[in-house]
Amino acid sequence: MNATTITSLTDRLGSRTLPEDHLAAATASLDLHHACAAAGLNLSVLPGVEHPGQVDLGSVGPETAVALTRMIRRTIKDALRASERLRAAICTHELDMPEPYVHRGQIVLGEIPLTTADRLVGLLGGPQPDPDVELSYWPEAQLLIKRLCQAFKQATHGGFLDPQFHPDCLRCQSDAALACGSIPVMTARRLARALERQPRTAA
């Protein structure tokens, strides 16, 4: 496909007669086509036909898909390294939590069991509660969130964490947990460093 394929759409109809979203799709298609061509990617980029106002990327061969994957990963190299470093630190301390992963340029922490969150507070230098406290009770869970946020902020030099408490659910048979969302790459790197400094402890 060459640039004429796309530009001819506006040449024939006239840019003033195209709805704004259609014109935006044509412009974006042309820009992406030029970028792919410059990068040597055989991508057939066109304004959407079945879905006007959208950009149709079409089908690509496996070689193009592999090349595109490599290019994208190069642009998020720092984020991927930070997530891998944090994953290794989590494994070292045998923390029962999902493996962190990269999404939209940030590091996703996911849902953390309350007992794991409590251990994380200790590893980050925060205060520990009475061992007989039932963390799944609402007041204690809110105190846990406060302790975790304070320890997290101190360990990551100002990093922000906004956990959401999810109580036990009898319907789906899931235990109470804290949904910790995602954090910036720099914060993830500092969190990993803070965990790396702590001696390994058994779960």
Rank of each mutant, 00 (worst) to 15 (best):
N2I: 09
L13P: 03
R16F: 09
E20N: 03
A25P: 06
A26D: 03
L30R: 15
L30W: 11
D31W: 03
N42A: 08
N42P: 00
L46D: 04
G48H: 09
G53V: 07
Q54F: 13
S59A: 13
G61E: 12
P62Q: 14
E63H: 14
L68D: 02
R70V: 08
M71R: 15
R73W: 12
I76W: 03
K77P: 00
D78P: 05
A79Y: 01
L80R: 10
R81K: 15
L86P: 05
A88M: 11
A89Q: 14
M97C: 05
Q106S: 12
V108T: 10
V108R: 07
V108K: 06
G110M: 07
G110W: 06
I112S: 00
I112V: 13
P113L: 00
T116Q: 07
L120K: 07
V121W: 10
L123D: 08
L124P: 12
G125F: 02
G126D: 09
P127H: 03
P131C: 04
W138Q: 13
P139C: 07
E140D: 15
A141V: 13
Q142A: 06
I145G: 05
R147M: 04
A151K: 05
F152D: 06
F152R: 02
T156K: 05
T156V: 05
H157N: 10
L161Q: 06
P163V: 03
D168W: 10
R171P: 03
I183D: 01
P184F: 01
P184V: 04
R189N: 11
A194Q: 03
